[in-house]
Simulated assay, not measured.
Amino acid sequence: MPLFRNAQFEISIAKPSGLPVPSGPEIAFAGRSNAGKSSAINTLAGHVRLAYVSKTPGRTQLINFFRLNSGALLVDLPGYGYAAVPEKIRRQWQGLIETYLKTRESLIGLVLIMDSRHPLTPLDRKMIDWFAPSGRPMHVLLTKSDKLSRGAAAAALQLVRSELRALGPQVTVQLFSSLKKSGVEEVETVIGGWLSGEPAAFEDVGATAHATSAEKTKAPDQGT
Rank of each mutant, 00 (worst) to 15 (best):
K144L: 02
I113C: 04
G168D: 06
R67Y: 08
A211R: 07
L195W: 00
A14T: 11
L74C: 02
D115E: 03
L73F: 15
A153R: 01
E26H: 06
V190K: 10
I97P: 05
N64T: 02
A7P: 03
S196F: 03
H139C: 09
Q94G: 10
W194K: 10
V205C: 08
R5G: 01
R49A: 13
E105K: 12
G81L: 07
F202H: 14
F9S: 00
S182K: 13
N42K: 12
A211E: 07
Y52D: 00
L141H: 04
S54R: 02
S177Q: 01
L62I: 14
M114S: 08
T99A: 12
P220T: 13
R150G: 14
E87F: 08
L159H: 15
K37S: 02
R67M: 06
E98L: 05
R59M: 05
N69F: 07
P2D: 08
L62N: 12
G183I: 00
F176P: 02
K15E: 10
Y52E: 05
P25C: 00
G183A: 04
A152C: 08
K102L: 08
G36S: 08
R59L: 10
P16L: 04
L77W: 07
L164I: 00
A211I: 03
R125S: 11
V190W: 00
A209T: 05
G71Y: 02
G223L: 09
K180V: 09
M138L: 14
N69E: 15
E188L: 10
P25N: 01
P25D: 06
L50C: 04
S182D: 14
I13G: 06
M127R: 04
S213L: 13
A83S: 09
F66P: 06
I13N: 04
D76K: 04
I13V: 14
G151L: 08
L107T: 04
Y52C: 04
V111C: 09
A211H: 06
K218Y: 14
V48H: 10
G223N: 13
A84F: 15
K218D: 15
R125W: 00
G183P: 09
P16T: 08
K147R: 11
Q174P: 04
R161Q: 09
L3C: 01
G31V: 11
M138F: 03
S23H: 15
G197I: 03
S149L: 04
D115F: 10
S54D: 06
Q222E: 15
T189L: 13
L107M: 01
T189M: 12
E26L: 00
A214F: 10
K37N: 03
V85F: 07
R5L: 11
G197N: 02
A152S: 13
T172K: 07
A152L: 14
V140R: 06
E10L: 14
A166R: 13
R67I: 10
L77T: 06
M127S: 08
I41C: 11
V21K: 15
G223V: 09
H139Y: 06
S12C: 06
Q222D: 15
H139T: 14
G206A: 14
L77G: 00
L73M: 10
I63K: 11
A40L: 13
A45S: 13
P119W: 05
S145N: 11
I27A: 08
A211F: 07
E215F: 14
L123Q: 14
Q61L: 05
